[in-house]
């Protein structure tokens, strides 16, 4: 199921602006990797290159390689739509489809890709909601609008929606930044459950969160405004938080940034 991601020599641009420069790293399957670093250091941009969402923005482009096991996502002839079915994504703000019910939100990925069999959809919806630890809270009101849920529930609904299409990799772009501590805890528990099945990468501003949920941590930084973001180091989370190899990492995680 879960796949390894191998990034080498990756640059990402918005028009002429280089947002990420020369990143090479490996993300292990069935593990959680956290991306940390100051705002604007390109960690979200980098994350979005892993499912080719970066290029959705006009003028954005990527050079370099992102290998998913042995396939390069940026080879000619690779369909970005197919990539996104393999690499799922959860966004910063919960964004359930407002016109759809809870059921329809979870079923959306399959249904919009042509699955009509009601039995299959029923099964997938139940399984995905269970995986997202939301089934117990919503199973008796699947027909209600997704937007009627609380923020934390909406985010778990979005996770259920993302896992319903059976991706290999799950990208999470600050999934808890709009949530209260209790909902955050629920999502963090969920991430622990999900890592048995998926390769998970989580971008976070919350250092404690990175320490709690991740097996490996990558630290990014920028030299200054207008300069591209770079990877400083990547390693085991425990190691990174106790004995970082780089001074910049230590300064950042101990709060003596700059």
């Amino acid at each position: 199921m879960a796949k390894r991601i191998d990034v080498s020599g990756l640059d990402a641009f918005y028009g002429h602006f280089k947002a990420v420069e020369d990143v090479s790293l490996t993300v292990e399957p069935r593990s959680v990797t956290a991306f940390i670093g100051p705002s604007g250091c390109g960690k979200s941009t980098l994350l979005r290159t892993f499912n080719r969402m970066h290029e959705v923005i006009p003028g954005a482009r990527v050079s370099g390689k992102v290998m998913l096991d042995d396939e390069n996502l940026y080879d000619d002839g690779v369909d970005p739509v197919a990539v996104r079915r393999t690499v799922g994504m959860v966004f910063q703000r919960p964004n359930p489809f407002p016109t759809m019910s809870i059921y329809d939100n979870v079923a959306a990925g399959l249904r919009l890709n042509g699955v009509k069999n009601k039995k299959v959809l029923d099964e997938v919806v139940e399984r995905s909601l269970k995986r997202a630890n939301l089934w117990g809270e919503v199973h008796d009101r699947l027909g209600k609008p997704g937007s009627s849920l609380s923020g934390g529930q909406q985010q778990r609904l979005c996770i259920a929606r993302a896992v319903a299409v059976e991706p290999q990799v799950l990208l999470m772009d600050e999934p808890c930044s709009a949530l209260d501590p209790i909902s955050t805890l629920a999502i963090e528990d969920l991430i622990q459950d999900l890592k048995d099945r998926y390769t998970i990468i989580i971008v976070t501003h919350n250092m404690q969160q990175a320490a709690r949920v991740s097996d490996r941590t990558a630290f990014f930084t920028i030299a200054g405004a207008g300069k591209p973001g770079r990877l400083v180091e990547i390693g085991d989370t425990a190691e990174m938080f106790s004995r970082p190899a780089e001074k910049a990492t230590e300064d950042y995680i101990t709060g003596r940034f700059g």
């Binding site: 959306a108 919009l112 890709n113």
Partner: peptide, 29 residues
């Protein structure tokens, strides 16, 4: 219609035209 919604749909592997027909238009209906 927020860009978030379009991206959420793309991220599920839904092609652009289907995103417009099934997500964007119903939201703006």
């Amino acid at each position: 219609v927020p860009r978030d919604l379009r991206e959420a749909s793309y991220a599920l592997g839904v092609p652009r035209w289907k995103t417009i027909v099934k997500v964007v238009l119903p939201t703006a209906f």
